[in-house]
Amino acid sequence: MTKWLIASNNSFKTADLQACLALAGIEAVGYTTQYPAVTFPAEGTASYAVNAQVKAEFLANLLHQPVIADDSGLELAALQNELGVTTQRDLASSSLSTNAAVLARLDDLPTDQRGAQMVTWLAAARPNHATIISSGTVTGQIVMTPRGQQSGGFDKIFQPTGQAGTLAEMPASKRLPLTHRGQAALVLQQKLLMENDR
């Protein structure tokens, strides 16, 4: 079985993606567990898929190892010209925490105007192989105040459609298959299996 390296310098994202990949039967570890940290190419502003692919191929070519990278974002129905592909960069400019910055942007909008989705694109790159791309999306709404201790990040303010609580209020066994990364990991697993069957 191929053991993948995760191309990220963000420890939270690495742990979350590692858990989602494990759910899909893909073994992966953060690349910094085996190699010194590197500076990745600057991300673009137009495409999750391109950002993930550039990052994965950069590290795979540098280390000559199989690498999975992701690019993710939060998209808000009320703020269609903000966040998305540039989510982390947009929120990093605020003096508030990321969740507080999102809640401040929505201020006192009612529930029916707090629609949101979290999006992930994954890229799996290996030397001498074509890069494989997958994606996942979870739709829902931003709650009024953070809730839950089962996970962090946007999970504390994101309530998926049809669910009674935020992602951070759910145990991992329920949460991970619902998340954008969990869905993208399952699609990636199917694509890797199809390639191996050729």
Score class of each variant (00 low, 15 high):
T2I: 11
W4H: 03
L5K: 02
A7Y: 06
N9H: 12
N9E: 11
N10Q: 08
F12T: 14
T14R: 09
L17G: 07
Q18S: 14
Q18H: 12
A19Y: 06
C20K: 13
L21N: 03
L21H: 03
A28F: 05
G30Q: 14
G30F: 11
T33H: 09
T33L: 11
A37P: 06
T39I: 02
F40D: 15
E43K: 12
S47Y: 07
S47F: 05
Q53W: 01
F58S: 03
L59S: 07
A60Y: 08
A60S: 15
L63H: 11
Q65G: 00
Q65L: 02
I68D: 00
A69E: 05
L74N: 10
L76E: 01
E82T: 05
L83N: 13
G84Q: 08
T86A: 00
R89M: 04
D90S: 08
A92R: 13
A92N: 15
S93Q: 15
L96P: 01
S97E: 01
T98D: 12
A100L: 02
V102W: 03
V102N: 05
L106S: 04
P110D: 09
P110C: 02
P110M: 02
P110I: 03
Q113S: 13
R114N: 05
M118A: 13
L122V: 13
A123I: 00
A125R: 11
P127A: 10
P127L: 14
N128C: 11
H129M: 08
S134G: 03
S134Q: 08
G136R: 01
G136A: 00
G140H: 06
G140V: 12
Q141T: 12
G148D: 06
F154I: 04
F154A: 04
D155R: 13
T161L: 10
G162N: 07
Q163N: 03
Q163E: 15
L167R: 08
E169W: 11
E169G: 05
P171M: 08
S173C: 04
S173D: 11
K174P: 00
P177I: 01
L178C: 04
G182P: 08
V187K: 14
Q190N: 13
L193I: 14
N196S: 15
R198D: 12
